[in-house]
Structures are given as C-alpha cells and as structure tokens.
Amino acid sequence: MRDLVRSYGKTLTTIFVALVCFWVLIMIVLPQAFMIEQSLWTMQRDSALGVKIDRAYADLATMNYDLGNARDESAKTALQAKIDALQAGISDMEQRETKPHKIYGLQNYTAMSGLHFRIFVKSIVYALAVTVLALLVCYPLAFTIAKLATPQRAALLLLGLVIPYAINELLRVYAWLMILDYQGVINSALEALGLVSFQDKTWVPFLEYSGSVFVALIYAYVLFMVFPIYNTVETLDKNQLEAAEDLGGSIWRTHWRVVIPHAKPGIAVGCIMTFMLSVGSYSVPQIMTRGKSGDWFSQLIYRQFFETQSWNLGAAYAFSLVLVCLVFILLMMKLFGVGIRDIAK
C-alpha cells in the first residue's frame, strides 16, 4: 500500500483502491451473497390461505347484508362485533399472504427430485465429455499454430479462430442448427448422394442426439481451450522438440514427455474454462435440442427462476452448480499439479 502511494500518489492510489473494492463488492461478493441467501430459505405458505381469505370475504358480505336487515339492536351489536373480528382475521391472513414467514435451512438443497438429480449428474458428465473432446480437438490445433506453422500462417490461423467470435453466440449456434437439421446441410448432402430421402423422412436426426449439443458447445467454446494451450506451448523452446527428435523420441513420446508437461497450466485453464462454460450453457442445449431431447441442468435452473417462480430453489440449484465448478477447478489443479499462480499466468 505504501509502495502504491509512493509510486502513484495519494489521488491515484485512492482511485485504484476504490475501484478494486467496488469490483470485489459489486461484482463478486454481492451477487454471490444474494444467491446464497436466497438459496437458504423457503416461504412458509399455507396453500389454502387464498381460499380461506376468499371464504372470509364471502362471509363478511353475508354478515354485512344481515347487518343491514337486522332490526334488533342487540343482535346488531353482536353482528358488528363478529364483523370486526372477521375483518381483523382477514387483514391478518392478508398480512401472512403478502409477507409470509421465511424459514432458513438447507431444505432447498435436499429438495431436488430424483429426476432433477439425474439431470444434474447427466449435465456434469456431458460437460466433462465436451471438455475432453474439446481438448482432443484443440491440443493438436494449438500445437500446430504455436510450433509448426510459419508466423504468417499462424497469424492467419489465429485470425480464422477469432473471426467467428465477432458473430453473436446465438447466431453461431443457429448456424450449427442449420447444418445438423433434418433438412439441413449435412442431410441435404446425404440426400444428394442418395443415402437418405427427405420424402421418406429417412434423414439422420442429428439434433435428437446429445452429440449435436456437444458439437455446438465445442464450437462455441473452442477459443477458451485453444488460447491457453497455445500460449503455453508457444513458450516451449523449439530446441527441446528438436532435441527430443534427435534423441530418437517418437512424436507421441515427445508430446507425452516434453510438450504436455510444459503445457499443463494451459491445458488446466482450458479445461476449467470449457467445463464451466459448457456446464452452465443455456442457449446451446436450448437451441440445439429444441426440446427433442432431455433438459440440461442449466435449463432446469432457468425454469426454476422464470417458470416455477421458485427463486429459492433456483438459487440452490445454481449454487450447487457453482460448487461443482469449484470442485472441478480444485480437481484439475491437483491432477495437473499446477498452483493458482500458474493458472493466473
């Protein structure tokens, strides 16, 4: 802190510190805290309360009618007392309806149904599969760009990777939809080859397979895997590759013993990013499956928030996903033997 003041002066230092505090508070602490708080309580709502209130109002109307027709003064007084009591009861019930009791506890976390839990596990397994596939696609790509291509060609290849990202993610996913659709690009090509027929509806239903979601997810997040790996492989001394070759190392051995150990931090970061993005992706499974195959967990969370109006359960679901991601990060760090510092690089 004192060094900061010495280097930048009091004004700038104050601005720096204020910005950092703002960032930590507004971007990290507050939303998470709000989510966690939401996930930790439920409303105690009497489901019959609405009916009770309606019935009370009906009774009240009857009583008021009776009151107007009553002749006896004593009966009138008694009726008035009843009406007052009922009105107090109504306002109490209305109070309870608008401001129900909050009950704190872990009930939202234990409330997940068997079906939802299956979807939860399935989504994690799918995201892992996407991560592994993306790694298999991206590692050779990153290595080629970093070590085999000439500088100009490497620049072109990187540009080719980045250009699709100038287009909105939704449009990119829709592009894949068009490619894989029943009468999409691939099926049209197959029809042209006489392998399928649109008339007999013998097209390949790509979109009904989870694989189509995988393809779109890998495509959507390929950069997040390629760039970290590219960055680490790029720093590998080319002489090391030549030395390994000179000593008789095969391509596999050279990668296994020399390149991959060097690229570990990049691989870990790429896997973490791809996993988190795909496990939390909403639009890709939504668009690609169009409801033809089961929900992903992210869609479930969406439904909790915006269809069931059950924010507390939604928050608990969402926070469970965050926990899974945290566990995944720790696992990757352990697996690849990299520290948080290596990843931050």
């Binding site: 001394d237 002489n239 090391q240 030549e242 030395a243 390994a244 013993r257 020399v258």
Partner: peptide, 8 residues
C-alpha cells in the same frame, strides 16, 4: 548438443 543445451 544445442547452443542453449535444450535440456528438459
């Protein structure tokens, strides 16, 4: 033997 040795 490389100029920078290229040890692993």
């Amino acid at each position: 033997i490389f100029q920078n040795l290229a040890l692993f």
